[in-house]
């Protein structure tokens, strides 16, 4: 449509990129700057990187914030906890979501459309309220405890809230639709005759699944896993509402450093390290995956 950039098109093309540079990349550069600044009392609570004094230009830069973070197992553990939470819940979402997506995609068209609507409804409804629902359910006086007491499995309410199992449960519950919908998107396009063909040629159901169905739904698996893994790595709300002090996560640590301790340089250094430890692997994976796809096409 547009072969060469004309003058009137320049603004059309560059406005959104200017916006992203200004409100996404400049802020990131800023937290990098603050992360290598020295903290001090006052507003803002860090010393300027460059200052002019009698001795000339002074540079007040430090790697101390990073050294502090990486010498304290408390912070390192929070990164590891976040990574393991993201891995565990992505895997669980995949294991629970795949059969659901598969059977919804294989249903008759009339039923399928209704089931699809039923998958989209939780996807659209408020994230916060769905986490809150588990807080209600898992209470000591909550419905799950009542049922367990009623059928005689336990005699007294057990505390199911404020531990990392409740966090995993909450994450799997809230992110499950994010896994199911992309999986469904690929499985529904998939020609069911391929399964019959594979069966007719004598393949066992397991082999049909591993050699035919799984490779063809791989893009859906990757898309769904990304949609779960990326937000869970920085998740704050679910650990705050359902979690306890047995495991602390990266998102909550940044929140507390900033809002409770008011230590901007440490919060910024945590965020920068978070980008390197948690976000770079995702970007590298996506680049490798794109290359792999490109080669196979």
């Amino acid at each position: 449509m547009i072969k060469n950039l004309k003058k009137q098109n320049v603004w059309f093309v560059f406005t959104p990129y200017l916006w992203l540079v200004l409100f996404f990349f400049v802020p990131l550069a800023l937290i990098f700057k603050i992360s290598i600044s020295v903290s001090e009392w006052g507003m803002p609570p860090y010393r300027d990187l460059f200052s002019l004094s009698e001795n000339g230009l002074e540079i007040n830069s430090t790697l101390g914030n990073y050294l502090f973070i990486f010498s304290d197992p408390f912070y390192i553990r929070s990164y590891l906890n976040s990574l393991s939470l993201a891995f565990t819940s992505t895997l669980l979402c995949l294991l629970i979501g795949y059969p659901i997506a598969f059977y919804v995609a294989k249903s008759k068209t009339s039923i399928r459309n209704i089931l699809l609507i039923m998958l989209i409804i939780p996807f659209w409804s408020s994230f916060l309220l769905r986490v809150y629902a588990w807080k209600v359910l898992l209470q000591g006086s909550g419905i799950i405890n009542s049922i367990l007491i009623h059928i005689g499995l336990i005699s007294e309410p057990i505390s199911m809230l404020h531990n990392h199992y409740a966090v995993i449960l909450g994450v799997v519950y809230t992110y499950l639709p994010f896994m199911i919908l992309p999986l469904y998107g690929y499985l529904v396009k998939f020609d069911l005759n391929l399964i019959d063909a594979s069966n007719d040629l004598g393949a066992k159901p397991f082999n049909t699944f591993v050699k035919v169905i799984l490779p063809l739904s791989l893009p859906g698996i990757v898309a769904g896993s990304m949609l779960v893994f990326i937000p869970v790595v920085g998740e704050y709300i679910i650990p705050e509402m359902l979690g306890g002090s047995d495991k602390l996560y990266f998102g909550k640590i940044i929140w507390d450093e900033f809002f409770v301790n008011r230590d901007w340089p440490i919060a910024s250094a945590l965020a920068m390290s978070g980008i390197v430890i948690l976000v770079f692997p995702i970007i590298i994976f996506q680049l490798m995956y794109a290359k792999y796809n490109f080669r196979n096409e």
Partner: peptide, 11 residues
């Protein structure tokens, strides 16, 4: 791919 907590802090 940016966690919302980092986005919020930087903004």
């Amino acid at each position: 791919v940016m966690p919302e907590i980092i986005l919020g802090l930087s903004l």
